[in-house]
Design a protein around this nucleic acid. Sequence first.
RNA 1: GCCGGCGUAGCUCAGUGGUUAGAGCAGGUUCUUCAUAAGGACAAGGUCGGAAGUUCGAUCCUUCCCGUCGGCACCA
Length: 485
Amino acid sequence: MAKFYITTAIPYVNSVPHAGHLLEFVQTDVIARSHRLKGEEVLLLSGGDENALKNVQAAEQAGIPVQEFVDRNAQLFLDLAKNLNVQFDVFQKGSSPEHHLSIQKFWELCDKAGDIYKKSYEGLYCVGCETFYTPDELNENQECFEHPGRKLETVAEENYFFKLSKYQEKLVGLIEKDELRIVPITRKNEVLAFLKNSLQDISISRTNERAKNWGVSVPGDNSQKIYVWLEALNIYQSGVGFGLDEEKYKKWWPADVHVIGKGITRFHAVYWPAFLLSAGLPLPKTLFVHGYLTIDGQKMSKTLGNVIDPFELVKKYGVDAVRYFFLREIPSTGDGDFSYEKFETRYNADLASGLGNLVSRVVTMAQNSANTSLLRSSGVSANNLEIQHIIESVNKECAEALEEFRFNEALESIWRLIQFCDRYIEQKRPWEESAEQREVIEDLLFALSHIAKLLQPFLPETAEKITEQLKEGKGESLFPRLRQV
RNA sequence: GCCGGCGUAGCUCAGUGGUUAGAGCAGGUUCUUCAUAAGGACAAGGUCGGAAGUUCGAUCCUUCCCGUCGGCACCA
């Protein structure tokens, strides 16, 4: 049996989940489910980026021990997945002892390859933020935006560096040939453009002091912690047993797809494959990069107060309505906008009046008609050739769109079938007795069973409900109409 | 500043070097009642960002301009 290993990005647990995580979790879940339905053995991994300095700072602010703080927040991400019907098979925490062991082994492999060396790093350091800044990150007074009026200090620090430059050409080749496939193409081009400049080596450790003694120690040097990017990316490996359970690791690695947001493209398209090349390990096959969400046309921000609580959204509208909106309205590889108005408009038009109403009318007609039985809904093909053809073409379009992660197009395609059914009903008037009444209703039931099947990866709960109504007769409305705001 | 994407009906977007530029949603008229005041049909709606150029002919090619979004390394 073929295996399929897919990951979400590792959420940064310094704060609570927002609508962006919702989008990514749902997209990842659709890919995972579609492969499960193809009969592949699938592993979906997520995890918590728990070793970053900002977690320590956020915990300090909250007045909670760091471990407790990251545990508490990580749990919220797990809860969100559960609420969304997203099935994580592994949730690998960055603070787990297994992961610590795993990343140290990874480090040692890179070190053996001769790619790690010590060098003094000098930069502008803000004591308030406890981080280094580059000149272009500063305001006109050469101060950081968080702490205006406070002078930055020039601080020199000895760190370990990774020979990124060594892998430049190799990476260009791999990406150009799609051996490391980057979707969409605009992201691929950006990465290639970046790789055409001369690459600098990157620092991959922090002093204990600067890391606030939180994180994973550098093997053989207890005075330094492994820089979070190297460390956090390895969650993709440690979660499937790298350095811990060779058999498991061999079974799952490399990842088939990493799903990420556009802001972390470089880490995944350049640093991560370079680390893996250095360690002599296989590279992930595909990076799928999604865009960012805006809310009412504006950036999500706490100060604007436009942050959408994904838990509330699910509670208010139901899990599949939420999944539907984010998959259908947000272009999968571009930026998209959320607003309650858009949400409710789409809900009423597509889910209530479209899908829900169609199921309702067809099931009722089947029950009212003396000539048909619901149980006869599962034919091998439709009586009507036109229906047969449209089902086949929607099947094909859907599969192709899924292959390239164009979820919005896949759903659009399914909705063409829904619309076709509505027209067909109007044209054939199967609520009236006629010679062809029975065949028409059977075809509609057949089409519905296909719609349910096609919806499985996207709206799993709804797909199941439709299948159930096709067997058991009419149940409650799938998507009760909302009164518009 | 440099590089790249985008700018098409009220909204979201598709599209092609050549007769009347498309879809969905919203709005309009109308038909229908199996259905969640749902569904169908029809009509309306665009100087395809602006200017110049190439061409027999450009929304689609070139240049410039305007607007907008993104990339330009240690911030995850």
